[in-house]
Structure formats: structure tokens, C-alpha cells
Design a protein around this nucleic acid. Structure first.
Lengths: 151, 151
DNA sequence: TATTGTTATACTCTATAACTATA
DNA sequence: TATAGTTATAGAGTATAACAATA
């Protein structure tokens, strides 16, 4: 069994299985308690555009793990809502650069605000020690995401 | 801005929104990279039935954050696949008790195994220090889930 | 009447296949 | 030919509304 032969690391009982289950449960909780104004892919795409600037449809599709046609459809929808714009890439006439509008930036900020508020309440109720461990693990969570994306 | 006024805790830059986004991104990634024999709700429902035994449609719907008709539809589909059975609750003629079959238990076990395997490969590539921090945060993730559930 | 569950219907998200435009 | 993107179409998952059966 993989669960019992590949320990996560320093934790006495923590195994990949435990981490997956914990993430699973917490993710489901987050998903349920966050107002669903838009899909996970939509908000992740807006966040990406906000943090890293304009990107091509193909790049966004790959980053979010959806197909090109799906991303085209999403971008069209976001464009219709005024959250992003499309413009031609001057360097390549085939490519479309997707860029966040001011309304898009506001939407990202508001969503972050709402999530932070919702979760800050729960996080505040954690024992100090656990809260610190959680904060310390955030970079590892991001790194793991990158690793899994790259493979 | 909430992001700058409500720190998670000991981390220098970690904020609630960082944690939420890291969780979202990471779980979405894991979910995408796990063979999609079934939906998130479906596997969560099977896992629940596996770990806690038979349950009513209403209870399952609430736990997964979907409507009763959606859960009815899912249960019918799982029943068609032979993963669960429906039976009448002897104590209440209106209620249907949903129960995992042997095939269902095998499916849960196999999915857990596949996720752990996929995840373990990524975890193994983390620097030792980050891997240890991740393992140390597992109890906090669980605790946070409980807190958010209870609120 | 209230509760449990189902059926009917529609909308959103995503996928595959076929197509257009540019390199 | 290969790449970037779109259009066309279909399937899965979920929601709301209306209904049936039981308490």
C-alpha cells in the first residue's frame, strides 16, 4: 500500500492519504461555503490574469486544465460580463491576448475579500500553534501545486 | 483591505486568502489529475458511505451541498453502476437508506489508492523542509474543516 | 400539514470534432 | 503543414418547480 510506505515527512502519522483526505474535505467545505457567483475555473482564471498579467487563451486553458474551446467559451463569457478584454497579439496574428479590465480587477479583489473574511473567522478559532503550522505550510501547498502542474 | 489586516498567524506573508487560493488550486489540480471515473460529489458521497455507513438521500445532499433532486439523480446513477443500493428505512416509510455495495467499497479503496499514489509522487519532490511543514499542517487542516462545518 | 423522495425541465460547464486564419 | 483560436454539437451535473407517498 502506498499509504503506508511513502510517508509525507516529519509528521508522525501524516501520509499522502491523510493529506489528500484533509484537502478533499476542506476543499469541499470551501467550495460549499463560498458564494458561487462564478465557476472555479472562472475565478482562478481571473486571479491568474490579475497576478500575472495578460495571457493567451491556450496558456490559460493549460493552466486551468481545460480544453482550448472551453477556455474560448469562458473568455467570451467573461468578456460579455466586462471582466476581461481580448486583443490581437502584435507579435503573432493568430494569438489573442486576454487582459483583465478594471471591473475584473475589482471582482478579483472582492472575491478575495469575501473568502478571506469567511475563513479568517475559522482560522482565528484555531489554536495558535495550529494556525502557525497552517501558515507555514502555505508555500509548500503552492510548491506542490506547481510540481503537480509541471509533471 | 482584509488581506493586509487579518494575518493567518506566524507566517510572514500568509493570509487567509493565500490559504484559500492555495487549497482551491491544489485540490482542483489533484482532482483533475485523478482519473475521472466519477464526479467530486460522487466520490465524496461514496467515501462518506464507506466511512460512516448507510444514510438518507436528504442527509447525503446536505453533506455534499447539493439539492435533494441532484442527490436522487446521483444515487440512481450509482445504483445503476452497482456501487450502492437503496432500501426502505424500516423506521420511516418515506425515507430511503442508501448503502454501499461491495463493489462500492472497492471503488472507494481504489480511488483513495490512486489519489495517494499520484500525490505521493509530487510530495516526494518537495524539499525536505517543505514536506515536513506540509505534514505538520495536516491536523490543522482537519481542525479547520471541523470548525467551518460547525459554524 | 410537514417531510422524504422523485420526476420534469432547463441551464452551466466541459468535451470532441470540424473549421478559419495566420505562421 | 503546424499553430491559435473559434464554432458546432453533445454529455454530465446541478438547479427549480411540481408531484407522490408517508408521517
Amino acid at each position: 500500500m502506498v499509504e503506508s510506505t511513502i510517508p509525507v515527512g516529519g509528521g508522525p502519522n501524516a501520509e499522502p492519504h491523510d493529506l489528500v483526505e484533509a484537502l478533499y474535505a476542506l476543499y469541499a467545505q470551501v467550495h460549499r461555503q463560498t458564494p458561487r457567483e462564478m465557476s472555479l475555473t472562472a475565478s482562478a482564471t481571473l486571479t491568474r490574469l490579475n497576478d500575472f498579467g495578460p495571457a493567451r487563451v491556450t496558456a490559460l486553458a493549460e493552466l486551468q486544465g481545460v480544453t482550448q474551446p472551453s477556455m474560448t467559451s469562458l473568455v467570451s463569457s467573461l468578456e460579455g460580463s466586462g471582466l476581461v478584454t481580448r486583443r490581437r497579439d502584435p507579435a503573432d496574428g493568430r494569438a489573442a491576448l486576454v487582459e483583465l479590465t478594471e471591473a475584473g480587477r475589482i471582482a478579483v479583489s472582492r472575491r478575495r475579500h469575501a473568502q478571506a473574511e469567511r475563513f479568517a473567522a475559522g482560522i482565528a478559532r484555531l489554536p495558535d500553534e495550529e494556525r502557525e503550522r497552517l501558515a507555514a505550510a502555505v508555500p509548500a501547498l503552492r510548491l506542490l501545486d506547481e510540481i503537480l502542474r509541471g509533471e
